[in-house]
């Protein structure tokens, strides 16, 4: 019997404190064969098991072109609190990958605009690094990344590489002016209006808190992006990750199975609760 709910055991091989309540865990499957067979696309997620506590879904935050599997976790509920107390050498359960991931073929040959807020950068980072690792497939890469304060910015180590890359622009912003802050100030939608990225031959990929998404979409529309060329990745409470347990639907689609990546055009045509 094949048990679709059975996780594989993975060891935590590295832990990095990103912000006061976000940690990035690097994982390696105990069973090498499992590790070898595990392939994923940017935008897909895994179900993390802390056995005895439960499961939580997290997107894989690094690119499949890199070696390890990394997930960034914000301390929130039961599972994440226990996870935050774990350290190198501890073991967790992993099953997946689940979800559709980003439509990599559709992105080829386009200008890419990444718009991220807070930990919303996690799924985008996977795609950003994927694109840099396959640089010739994409045109200009623009990244707008915001957080409430500079302390809440994640993946700070990688900004230099992104900035320096050819044909790439990184715009960092925080909500309010701080001492020693030299980048931009203001919420993400406002920054977008200032930098006016081109909509021509472009796809925007947006991920962040609901409030940011809500105000970013109309700005993108004003900049000339059509709903088909705006992608976002959604989150909702999930349990099974397989479209069976019934809680993460918007309309007839399950975020876990049919998402989490949707185009704005898709969402526009759907009835949903929030």
């Amino acid at each position: 019997m094949k048990n679709i709910y059975l996780p594989h055991i993975a060891e935590i091989v590295d832990v990095k404190q990103e912000t006061s309540d976000i940690k990035t865990f690097t994982l390696r499957f105990k069973d090498k064969a499992v590790g070898k067979a595990f392939t994923y696309k940017p935008g897909q997620f895994v179900e993390f098991s802390i056995f005895g506590e439960g499961e939580s879904p997290f997107c894989i935050s690094n690119s499949p072109t890199r070696d390890s599997i990394e997930c960034s976790v914000k301390k929130m509920g039961k599972v994440t609190q226990v996870l935050h107390e774990m350290d190198i050498g501890d073991e967790v359960g992993i099953r997946g990958p689940y979800g559709n991931g980003f439509p990599l073929d559709e992105l080829k040959g386009k200008n890419l605009l990444f718009v991220a807020g807070g930990i919303g950068l996690a799924p985008l980072r996977s795609l950003i690094n994927y694109c840099f690792d396959n640089r010739k497939d994409y045109k200009t890469i623009t990244i707008v990344n915001g957080a409430r304060t500079s302390k809440d910015l994640v993946y700070k180590d990688e900004y230099k590489t992104w900035e320096k890359a050819k044909d790439a622009h990184l715009h960092l912003t925080v909500d309010c002016q701080e001492d020693n802050w030299t980048c931009m100030v203001g919420v993400v939608p406002k920054i977008l209006e200032e930098i006016k990225p081109t909509c021509k031959d472009s796809i925007a990929i947006v991920c962040g808190p609901p409030i940011m998404i809500k105000f970013t979409l109309p700005v993108l529309m004003r900049l000339g992006f059509c709903p088909e060329s705006i992608l976002t990745t959604l989150e909702m409470k999930m349990k099974c990750g397989l479209g069976k347990c019934g809680r993460c639907n918007i309309g007839n689609l399950y975020i876990c199975k049919d998402g989490p990546v949707f185009s704005y055009a898709q969402l526009n045509g759907m009835n949903y609760d929030h």
Binding site: Y5, F51, G52, G54, K239, C240, R247
Partner: peptide, 14 residues
């Protein structure tokens, strides 16, 4: 058919 997955005493239940 909606269900929950719950851990209790080193066992997982649906």
């Amino acid at each position: 058919h909606c269900f929950d997955l719950v851990d209790e005493e080193k066992k997982r239940m649906r």
